[in-house]
Structures are given as structure tokens and as C-alpha cells.
């Protein structure tokens, strides 16, 4: 059932959608690395991320933003993928800290991945070890900009290149055993 809107109406509608998406970012509660320690200050009274509509959510079904707060151990990566796949479109990933970008100080560790965007699509990287709450908020604002300009299409990228991502993921996760991603 295709409803054809007027072109302008469609544009307005999509702008409203983007605006709503950008102004209400629900972050899934997942402290994956040491960056998790800067999340409480970001969310609480000093920096108050709720001003920007950012708030926590308990389960991936309700969440919009997955924060990868730092390095990912191989064991965690598996769970992160699972969590990411359970989130509903549109979904965004913000990666924290140098260790998600290039391994950071754990470049030679046998248990942490070095390049996050090989495994899940990352919309915004925040560098630093660890990024300050201001940087985190700036990262969110950057994400909001991307959403408003319809550039935060990580999920679409993931859907298109699922095979490639899967190959990379399976390369380090030996025992896969996960329900298939079906949307």
C-alpha cells in the first residue's frame, strides 16, 4: 500500500521525523569498557544529557543509540553484536575512545579488537582516552547533526553489507551460535 504524498508534504514529514529522532536519543545501558565511567557524569546533574533528549533505556528493543564505551573484548563483541542486532531501525552507534578507533593502548592485546567499524557500523567516533563528558555530548550533537542531514545510515550500511560484517565477525568469534539477523 503506497500512499503518495505531495512532495513538499513528504519532505516536511521526513524533516519532522528526523527532528524527532534527533531530539530523542535513547541510549542503551551497556557499559562495555572503561568509558562507561564517564557516562554517569554525562547523564547526571553536572552535564545533564537529558537536556538534549538523551536518556537511558533498559533494553535494546527501545534504544536508538548503542554506546561502545571503549575497547571491546572478543567475548563482549559477541554480545554487542547481539545487542546491536536486536535494536530497531533507525539505530546509531557511537564509539568511545582511542581503543575503538585503532586499539589505543591495547594495540597488542590478544583479547581486544582494534577496529570497531569492521564489525559493526559506527556513526560517530569520539576520540580520547577517555573522552570527557563534554566530548561525549559533542559526539551526541554530531550524531544529531548527522541524523538531521540523514547521514547517520550505519544501520542501512550494516544491512547492505551484512555478509562482509558477518565474515569479519565470524573470523574472531569461533563459536557463533546466534539467532539470525532477519531485518
Amino acid at each position: 500500500m503506497e500512499i503518495t504524498y505531495d512532495k513538499n508534504a513528504q519532505e516536511i514529514l521526513s524533516t519532522i521525523k528526523s527532528f524527532a529522532r534527533k531530539s530523542s536519543l535513547w541510549v542503551i545501558a551497556y557499559g562495555t569498557g572503561c568509558g562507561a565511567i564517564e557516562i554517569p557524569p554525562t547523564m547526571t546533574s553536572r552535564y545533564d544529557a537529558e537536556r538534549f533528549g538523551i536518556r537511558g533505556s533498559a533494553t535494546p528493543r527501545q534504544a536508538d543509540v548503542l554506546l561502545i564505551t571503549g575497547y571491546l573484548a572478543v567475548k563482549t563483541l559477541k554480545r554487542v553484536i547481539r545487542t546491536y542486532e536486536q535494536m530497531q531501525d533507525p539505530k546509531y552507534v557511537i564509539a568511545f575512545g582511542s581503543c575503538t578507533i585503532n586499539g589505543g593502548m591495547y594495540w597488542d592485546s590478544y583479547n581486544t579488537i582494534k577496529l570497531l567499524d569492521k564489525y559493526i557500523p559506527v556513526d560517530v567516533y569520539i576520540n580520547g582516552c577517555m573522552p570527557r563528558p563534554e566530548a561525549v555530548i559533542q559526539g551526541f550533537i554530531k550524531l544529531q547533526e548527522l541524523i538531521m542531514n540523514k547521514k547517520a545510515e550505519g544501520a542501512a550500511k550494516y544491512k547492505e553489507n551484512l555478509e562482509w560484517y558477518r565474515e569479519n565477525q565470524r573470523k574472531i568469534i569461533h563459536n557463533w551460535r546466534m539467532p539470525e539477523y532477519n531485518w
Partner: peptide
């Protein structure tokens, strides 16, 4: 938010939340 020493979201934040949830692309 005020009691918690914060600024807090705008008053229409809940409306934004609901709009955003309606505009989610997938529903499982």
C-alpha cells in the same frame, strides 16, 4: 530534573519521544 539539580529536558520532550517511536522504521 530540577529536584535533581539538573536543567532537564524541554516540556515537550515526551511528545518528541513518542513521535520518534512512531517514526521507528522497524518494529519487532
Amino acid at each position: 530534573a530540577r529536584i535533581q539539580n539538573r536543567v532537564g529536558p524541554p516540556i515537550y520532550q515526551n511528545l518528541l519521544d513518542i513521535t520518534k517511536l512512531y517514526s521507528k522504521k522497524t518494529a519487532v
